[in-house]
Design a protein around this nucleic acid. Structure first.
Lengths: 192, 192
DNA sequence: GATCCGTGATTGAACGTTCATTCAGTCATT
DNA sequence: AATGACTGAATGAACGTTCAATCACGGATC
């Protein structure tokens, strides 16, 4: 019953793709609707306003990321392995679904990301926090606030993806080195 | 002679502040002009269009950051000290001038950040790349492409600032741990 | 010193466009 | 025939940009 109507998802996915290409201003409802093969007016059957649509898109993307990453995590492994799984799964996901990463970045740095929005219950945020807390409690990570560890790791993932996206063509040499990044991050956060 | 007209700087600073508060859409030329105490039409004496104004703002902010950071760097010190100076100076700068960081993030993740824009000669980008190259060549950093090292460090700085901004009030405990971040980053990138 | 003129900067109302949103009408299903 | 989903043209507000009018000021003239 928590099933989201398929037309609603169609609209969200259409908005996601458009926003990746053109940003928030470059994505009028008329275009979003056209790409989703519905009429402009229909968008308002599913969302109160464009703003509300974008807030729901934010929740949607984070819930998709959570679904994907949490289901591939194996809590029975030791934490170091789980960390590299986490890293690889997240970078692959962002690589496959470029619009996820692009939308999240745009949203986060935009004024949509109000204080209210940040205080909203955030399953993905709580999951990552719990993940890193386990690392700390099992003694494999530095004894720091898991929010901070999480922030550092996520920041690196984002930097990496951005790097890959921007420097797709040139600097083939550099791309060799990219494999070393998760190790560097691990060396930074592990218990020494 | 390369002096930028003070009215032009007034407009840029006004736009910077407004964009930090309200983002690109929330910063119409009429408002930018009002905050800069000029008429809307005058903006077009200094910039061809709103887009061109935003591109110039991007160049302006990066040149200000370069000026500030490069003048405080002391190449005579050993690289580890220079790294911590770099870190502290950059975080302080972004803390003092919140609009710099906010604008750069919004710009980078927006469609303004076209391929053409990225190919433009970028003194700040070249400076940081040279900085990390020196670290590699002096044997104090891991032998990686300096672009990648630069990216990792900048990503962490940004994450830290974001963290500070968003979690200003709550989690006072966490803020103790924030001091440890540059050390963690250094442990990740130093030659082991 | 007072007055006038010319020039370039500055103004802000007006224009045309784009967009979010609405709603009267149409369609599909039962 | 009734119901509810769907449509897309119409509406009005907001915006980027233009440009005729005004202003500020330095020099020329008396």
């Amino acid at each position: 019953m928590d099933q989201i109507s398929s037309k609603k998802v169609q609209i969200l996915e259409s908005a996601l793709e458009l926003i990746r290409e053109k940003g928030f201003h470059g994505s009028p409802i008329s275009q979003v609707a056209k790409h989703a093969s519905v009429a402009a007016g229909s968008v308002y059957t599913y969302f109160e306003s464009k703003d509300e649509m974008i807030f729901e898109l934010y929740r949607y993307v984070k819930s998709e990321v959570l679904k994907e990453i949490s289901e591939k995590d194996d809590p029975k492994k030791n934490f170091e392995d789980r960390f590299f799984d986490f890293w690889n799964n997240l970078t692959s996901l962002y690589q496959e679904r470029v619009a996820f990463q692009s939308f999240l970045e745009q949203f986060t740095s935009s004024p949509y990301n109000t204080e209210t929005m940040q205080l909203e219950t955030d399953p993905w945020g709580r999951w990552t926090e719990a993940f890193f807390r386990e690392g700390v409690e099992s003694g494999q990570l530095r004894p720091l606030n898991p929010k901070i560890l999480s922030m550092m790791v996520m920041g690196s993932v984002i930097s990496l993806i951005r790097f890959r996206t921007y420097f797709k063509t040139k600097t083939a040499s550099a791309s060799q080195d990219l494999h070393l990044i998760p190790q560097m991050v691990w060396d930074g956060i592990k218990f020494q």
